[in-house]
Amino acid sequence: MNTTLLKIQNLNKAFGNKKVLNNINFTVQQGHIIGLIGANGAGKTTIMKAILGILPFDGKITINDKAVSIRQHQPLQSVGALIEYPGLYPYLTGREQLRLFSTGKDREQKVNNIISKLRMDHFADQKTKGYSLGMKQKLGVGLALLNNPQFVILDEPMNGLDPKATKDLRDLIVQEKQNGVTFLISSHILSELQRIADDVIVINHGEIVTSTTMDNLLAANKKFYLIETDNNEMASDLLLRNNYQVENKTALEIPITDKFSINDLLQLLLSNNITINDIKQQDGDLEESLLKVLDSEGK
């Protein structure tokens, strides 16, 4: 059974006369990974800051049915977060930084666990003032996950991470999700979100453009076959006459629909003496899907 962990109702925020969030409504189910997607300045970080009660807003935000506001932070008890960039004390080592924010029982064990999970052993005992961007980012994620939170908010967590560290973080997020942790993640590296997010919220100019599952969003840019023949124009006409969708006549892009059969299609082409030079299957891509969604919004 799905349990609502986060509920946002009629969230509005303006900085002076500039409205940055306009009537945002969405819910987050426990144990899901939600990708928050949008261009720079779309309002992703502002939504995250509002959830964390660090800026005043109009509307209602609840975590586990308890309202959050700039004055009410109690519901954030089991929330971990990394917003924009990790704020670190330069005079502390990574381990000391984790020790500082570790709370509850077995504090030292929590510190050691997170160092080992994020493979920070080789730099955990160095002062953070000497850290690279990637090391800082890792420690920032470590701080967010340190106290075994139920809900984790990560703003661009892959920033500055090398491919290996990105994969480690992705695996860690999936692993934590399996332990019941809920994630709200914004990232401009859409391929990363595509691999891990269950649901997607697309924001544009402070408004939700779409709030759907990752599968649904990817369906907006369906899988298709790219077929090259010795006579693409003739092949295209033939396919259109036989009720196939051909989206791009020169490249013969043929979307894969529910009743689609590649055998039937190939047979049709061959029986009409069309030679097939090349055939490729292309998967749906989040970036393409997102552009389509944003384009349709702009129209």
Binding site: L52, G53, G87, L143
Partner: peptide, 18 residues
């Protein structure tokens, strides 16, 4: 100093109030 290090935010987005 908390502002300068960017740590004020991480102090605030916990269960504790301003």
């Amino acid at each position: 100093k908390e502002r300068q290090f960017g740590t004020l935010r991480s102090l605030l987005y916990r269960k504790f109030s301003y």
